[in-house]
């Protein structure tokens, strides 16, 4: 059915992807509010338009009115939109500041956009970095749940319920790191280190795609994230032969 999928789009889906993070849940709710407000505006304007179209069509012997001013109505249709905009702006700005910064990152992953794949580096670990390439259509194994144009050879594994800081960089042209289910999108700009964050609240596989035109392979550099329990994540890092770096800076505090 339309919205049942988790981490990617359903066929005939109508709305945002199912939230997999508290942040995306906020975005989802804010969008629902906007949908009501904008929906009411469109219905209201269309109803007025339809009424005028039917009611004021040309009839024999009926002369048109001649008014061209009405100060009261003009003041109303200036003030009311301002009030509506204030109603939108308050939760909007709250959301914006919520998105902006994570208080205490528990894990930091640096991702770098290349033409046309992503590189990942777990900053808290020694020896945990890899490149992540898309899987070619003919190698897609649907029995493993792989999805064409979304699955990668090296998925990013992250623990659930963890504040993850994501540093976004680019090696050649501008790319954009995106993970719709977690409410994440940040441009990867050469010469600049951007920051964003996510906190995934349940295990699962989540997909994203490069979101800034970057050349021939723009459509072919997906992002695949496996969210697992913290224990599974520790097991995975050990299996990768990674060692946790001493947290010198954190201990200084």
């Amino acid at each position: 059915m339309a919205n049942a999928q988790d981490g990617y789009a359903g066929s005939w889906q109508l709305n945002l992807q199912t939230p997999a993070s508290p942040l995306q849940a906020e975005i989802y709710d804010f969008h629902t509010m906007l949908l009501w407000i904008t929906g009411i505006i469109v219905v209201f304007v269309t109803a007025l338009l339809a009424y005028a179209v039917v009611k004021f069509r040309r009839k024999k012997g009926v002369e048109p009115a001649n008014f061209a001013h009405n100060t009261l109505i003009e003041v109303i249709w200036t003030i009311v939109p301002i009030v509506v905009l204030i109603i939108i702006a308050i939760p909007s700005l709250k959301l914006l500041y919520l998105e902006d910064r994570i208080p205490e990152p528990e894990l930091t992953i640096k991702t770098t956009g290349y033409q046309w794949y992503w590189g990942y580096e777990y900053m808290d670990y020694d020896g945990l970095e890899f490149m992540s390439y898309p899987i070619a259509d003919e190698d897609i194994d649907e029995s493993k749940g792989q999805k064409r144009l979304l699955s990668t050879d090296n998925p990013v594994v992250v623990p659930v319920d963890t504040n993850i800081q994501i540093l976004v960089a680019a090696a050649d042209v501008i790319h954009a790191f995106a993970l719709p289910a977690a409410g994440v999108k940040k441009d990867a700009v050469p010469g600049q280190l951007n920051e964003t964050w996510m906190r995934i609240d349940r295990p699962g596989v989540y997909y994203g795609q490069c979101s800034e035109i970057c050349g021939t392979g723009h459509s072919y550099m997906p992002i695949e994230i496996h969210a697992v329990s913290k224990e599974e994540f520790d097991a995975w890092t050990r299996k990768q032969g990674a060692k946790l770096k001493p947290k010198a800076i954190a201990e200084d505090k």
């Binding site: 904008t38 919520l98 719709p180």
Partner: peptide, 22 residues
């Protein structure tokens, strides 16, 4: 009007994060 209200949706930087470049 339809294009205008989706403009209002996109105007919100907090919302645009999931809609930008889509």
């Amino acid at each position: 009007t339809v294009g205008g209200v989706t403009g209002v949706v996109l105007a919100n930087a907090g919302m645009d994060v999931v809609l930008h470049d889509t």
